[in-house]
């Protein structure tokens, strides 16, 4: 059957590959521009103004950044963020890897156990944060209750009332939430490692530790790099957990850059200052990405030659 001749003129331009290509890209481009480029650009621009809620601001150049540089609360928030990210990431990596290695063994009810491990990751953060809020409650804390009953302490622990207690408590909650992501991703990585490497290594005389050190770890490095980059980014920009648990308190001890930025911009009303704080996070995030990309991800043994 021959198709009917197209009406003269009219739809002819649709036959052009370039026009058609641009047309197909349009929806994605509109979404990216409207929901990524515009807010990001607006944020950067706001950072250079003294905009307050209800009052359009004026261009002030680097004034916001200069102020924030000298602001002790911002400096504390920066320290908190780095400390929070560093400690939580180290633990998430260690526990996640350990869990992944365990789950990679032949366990009974393997699929079921793997599903359970994912639970903390599926539960909405705000919800699990409320659960932690109860666990850390000054009067009703289950941890304090158990420890008192066991006779290990005689006073309830003030988890969220003391600066360092609060820091470690929020970090613990973040680790709990982040471990499943790391564990499942690393498990996926472990499963790509052919069992014959381990068989060869065991014939070569490698102990289980040496098999881990010389086979598992190097072969897992590319995936570790990707997973830990994501984990660091998520942790560095964490907001929900802190906001539900402590709102940055006590004495700003748990304020992260994200929470402080929100605090300054919305409840505080200084949109410009908040935006500047948020933009200040970007260099750290970029540095983390570049470090993993150049430092860990690309390995010489992965390059060159296909499977000839």
């Amino acid at each position: 059957m021959t198709s009917a001749a197209p009406p003269a003129g009219g739809t002819r331009w649709l036959d052009n590959r370039n026009v058609l290509g641009a047309l197909f890209m349009l929806p994605a481009a509109v979404l990216l521009l409207a929901f990524l480029t515009y807010p990001l650009g607006l944020g950067v621009w706001l950072g250079f103004t003294d905009t307050k809620i209800g009052r359009p601001g004026e261009w002030v150049g680097f004034e916001n950044y200069e102020f924030l540089w000298g602001d002790s609360v911002t400096r504390l928030a920066l320290f908190n963020t780095l400390f929070y990210t560093l400690v939580a990431s180290i633990f998430k990596f260690g526990l996640g890897l350990w869990l992944a290695l365990l789950l990679n063994k032949h366990l009974p009810f393997k699929a079921f156990i793997r599903a359970i491990v994912l639970l903390p990751f599926i539960v909405p953060t705000a919800l699990s944060a409320i659960a932690f809020w109860w666990i850390y409650d000054a009067q009703f804390s289950v941890i304090s209750w158990v420890l008192t009953k066991a006779g290990l302490i005689d006073r309830y622990i003030d988890f969220l009332g003391d600066p360092w207690n609060a820091r470690f408590s929020t970090i613990a909650a973040n680790i709990w939430r982040g471990v499943p992501f790391v564990a499942i991703c690393l498990l996926a990585g472990l499963q790509t490692i052919s069992p014959s490497y381990y068989e060869a290594a065991s014939l070569d005389g490698a102990t289980p530790w040496q098999q881990f050190r010389y086979v598992t770890l190097p072969l897992l490095t590319p995936i570790i790099a990707v997973v830990m980059t994501f984990s660091v980014l998520f942790t560095f920009t964490d907001f929900q957990l802190i906001y539900v648990l402590t709102r940055g308190g006590p004495l700003n001890a748990t304020h992260l850059m994200a929470t402080l930025s929100f605090q300054r911009a919305i409840p505080g009303g200084s949109l410009g200052e908040g935006a500047a704080l948020a933009v200040a996070m970007v260099p750290f995030l970029l540095a983390a990405i570049l470090f993993s990309y150049f430092g860990l991800q690309r390995r010489r043994w992965q390059q060159g030659g296909g499977d000839a």
Binding site: S194, S196, E199, A200, A201, S202, L203, G205, Y214, W301
Partner: peptide, 28 residues
């Protein structure tokens, strides 16, 4: 296995991909 004093050549060779030929040969 490692105490049996045997060496095996695998169907898929099982060469450690992250080691050079020299390191593969000398690993054991």
């Amino acid at each position: 296995p490692k105490e049996r004093d045997i060496a095996m050549v695998f169907q898929n060779y099982a060469l450690y991909p992250h080691m050079t030929v020299r390191d593969n040969l000398s690993f054991a």
